[in-house]
Structures are given as C-alpha cells and as structure tokens.
C-alpha cells in the first residue's frame, strides 16, 4: 500500500479531515467511455415529474461536437430543486424490483430531482420534469452534468428559463457573461406550452458555457 493510501485511511479512521494538513488528493476523473449504455441508463430516467404534477415541463435538446455533428454517446444528468425550491430530493429515481432485479420506475409520487438520459442516435435527449422553484438570490435553473465518450472529465452547465428575464439580471453567473455567451444557458420556449429546447455545444461556434465550482 502506498503512502497516500495510508494517509487517507488514517484520516478516515479519525472520522474527520486531516486538520492542519493538505486535503486528500481527489481521485481523477476518466471518460465514461462508449459502453456505459447497458449499465447507467434506467427506464424512466428522464421522467422526473410525479404522475400527479400540475405543471410539467419538457426540456430537450441535442448534444453536438466541435464539427456540429451530433454526439450519440453522451449521457446527460439533471439535478434540480422541486417546484417550491426545495433541494431535499428523494430516493427512488432508479427504483428496483426485488423479485426479478428489474426496474419498477419511480413511485409516481416522490420528486427525486434527478434525471439521467443517454442521447439517442441523433444526439438528442428529453426530460419531463417540473419547473424548479427559485432559491434565494437565484432564478430557477436546472443543473446539468454532461458525460461522453471522448470527454475525459464531465462538464457542468445550467438550463435557465427564458421567461425569468427580470430575475436573470440579478443572477451572479448570468450577470458575469456577455450577451452571446449568456444565451447558451437560456432554454428556448417552443410552441407547445411548457416545452423548452436546450442544445449543448461541446466546442466551437455558440459553445455552451461550462462551469467550474472548484475555486
């Protein structure tokens, strides 16, 4: 066993951090690769809205690479507040059947706040959810984590909603961006009520704004 491992074990045995010393080095990220498809996606992964939810919204879009080609092997995860802005979440996103080990789908009542959707052959993904409530100092937004073959370290971005124009002026992130870049974080309202388009461009023209929380 190497020295770093020992340090890590000692810190954990104490049940607390190594006070006064360096934080543990994080385990490095790697690409999700091409073959996650039989392991990570689950039935109903994009159906976050409980069955009885009054106002469901559909958020969907394409993932494209630096040449504009669709990315058919990306995995999109969403995490968001409930309609009242609560972030407690709930277990049961990938509820299982203890009889045959299959998937039961969500229980139709609890709001887990979590979606996981692989892109299809067109590079397209869809989630059916409820619009998140605002948090103090923040307009409503859905947090997005993007994984893909070829992407060595996942990327975070956010879906903001176009109708919250006034609240957007107070949002520290949106306020820090010029108009062209800010636009990449705003979903587009579509004809159908409650339908929003949000494309993710990994590179190049209209490249999506990706976020760093590690400062």
């Amino acid at each position: 066993m190497t020295a770093p491992e020992n340090t890590r074990d000692q810190a954990a045995a104490d049940g607390q951090g190594p006070h006064g010393s360096e934080p543990l080095q994080p385990t490095p990220s790697h690409t999700v690769g091409p073959f996650y498809g039989y392991a990570l996606p689950f039935p109903g992964g994009g159906d976050v809205a409980p069955a009885n939810a009054a106002d469901t919204v559909t958020v969907h879009g394409y993932v494209r690479d630096g040449s504009g080609a669709p990315v058919p092997d990306a995995l999109i995860e969403l995490w968001q507040a409930d309609a009242d802005g609560g972030l407690a979440g709930a277990p049961g996103s990938m509820r299982r059947d203890p009889v045959d080990g299959g998937h039961l789908g969500r229980n139709g009542v609890d709001f887990t706040g979590f979606a996981r959707v692989p892109t299809d052959a067109d590079g397209h993904w869809t989630a059916r959810t409820v619009k998140p409530g605002a948090r103090p100092g923040h307009p409503p937004y859905i947090s997005v984590c993007v994984f893909a073959r070829g992407l060595l370290h996942h990327l975070f971005t956010r879906v903001y909603f176009p109708e919250d124009t006034r609240a957007h002026t107070d949002d520290p992130l949106l306020a820090s961006l010029d108009a062209e870049r800010r636009e990449t974080l705003l979903a587009t309202a579509e004809g159908a009520t409650g339908s929003y388009r949000f494309d993710i461009r990994l590179q190049g023209e209209k490249e999506t704004v990706f976020l760093d929380f590690h400062r």
Binding site: G66, W79, G150, S176, T208, D212, R215
Partner: peptide
C-alpha cells in the same frame, strides 16, 4: 476522441453560496 469533444473556452468560475443548487445532490 477528445479532439472535437472538449470546450475551447475556459470554464466559467462559479462562486458557490449556500443556495447554490449544485452544493446539494440527488439521494
């Protein structure tokens, strides 16, 4: 495979506050 699948622009730093959605997570 990373050639066309990495952003050219630097990541935009977010200064998290306790209300930041990403400081919580799915359970």
């Amino acid at each position: 495979s990373s050639a066309l699948r990495h952003p050219h622009r630097p990541l935009v730093p977010v200064e998290p506050d306790p209300e930041t959605v990403e400081l919580h997570g799915p359970v």
